[in-house]
Design a protein around this nucleic acid. Structure first.
Lengths: 158, 158
DNA sequence: TTCATATTCAGGAATGATTCTTATTACTAT
DNA sequence: ATAGTAATAAGAATCATTCCTGAATATGAA
């Protein structure tokens, strides 16, 4: 799956009565430029380096708008929202210790939605698979931390 | 899959230095007694009928605690938390028009986590599959509502 | 039973992410 | 240029959730 060209993105963003502002464009670039599934706050901090006067509200508004246009993806996560610049169909793994979210390269049966839809009577437009557990480095870290002590979360954020 | 007996639940709840209070027990009953995947607020309103002096904080605290004990399940949903009294492994369908969440009877390949874990190197403890689309009644309703008007969400809640 | 201790509670304040409001600025088409 | 619309910055407001307090209550040991 190829990343869409800037030209294509421009076309998607530019529709009747909608402008392509610096802020919006830069926010899109930042989200597309990372695979860390960032929060609004993280995007805000990044964008701020180039547009120091931008406001957090603008970031929120545009993330929402970009997601509605289908140019980025909004992830379902507890507590705070996260965004994904990769709009290709893919699944995620969340490490429950460090909190990081990883893209899965492995594709899980793409006909799943269709099959379940046929069997249940629901009209299924899409689905989402989230895996949970420990990433490699956290397995190691958890192994070192002996003594029954509850391992504290690093709470990575992005 | 059978619902656990009250006796079993008692045993799970009663561990050293943990009491089984009216409040906690009733909250558990309410969540187990519905398949509507309620929010904390909804549980609060229900429980209040029998325990008028209970506080919302108590509901939150106990929902969290019951989820940690594995007696109920906490769903990952955007905006606000939802709980599920059905702790058996199952998937969900969310109607994007009315907002309701349905349990899926159909079981999707139970070995999924193991397979993906083996292929990716992550240590996967569990996974979650969420389907999205329209439920039967909303397909009907959406059909009636002609004229290009954006169908307003009923925002069911539970 | 009685005491000592820890848990849980109600009530309300505090927090934190997100959305909304308002006045201002910046495009776009005329 | 000008009028009209969309987008912005700043900060207030909202909403779900957590945290804090002091009082009440169960539990286990003596």
């Amino acid at each position: 799956m190829k990343a869409p060209s800037d030209f294509q993105l421009q076309a998607d963003l530019r529709r009747p009565g909608r402008r392509v502002t610096n802020q919006r464009w830069l926010i899109l670039e930042v989200v597309r430029g990372t695979d860390s599934h960032p929060t609004a706050e993280w995007v805000y901090q990044k964008v701020r380096r180039r547009l120091p006067r931008i406001s957090l509200g603008t970031v929120y508004r545009n993330l929402k708008l970009l997601a509605e246009e289908g140019l980025i993806q909004e992830l379902e996560s507890r507590g705070f929202g996260r965004y994904d610049g990769n709009t290709a169909r893919h699944d995620h793994f969340t490490c429950q210790r460090c909190g990081r979210i990883f893209d899965l390269e492995v594709r899980v049966d793409p006909s799943l939605g269709r099959r379940i839809g046929a069997r249940t009577g629901f009209t299924i437009t899409h689905h989402r698979i989230e895996f949970y557990g420990l990433c490699a480095s956290c397995v190691l870290a958890a192994g070192h931390a002996k003594g029954g002590e509850t391992s504290k979360r690093a709470r990575h954020r992005p």
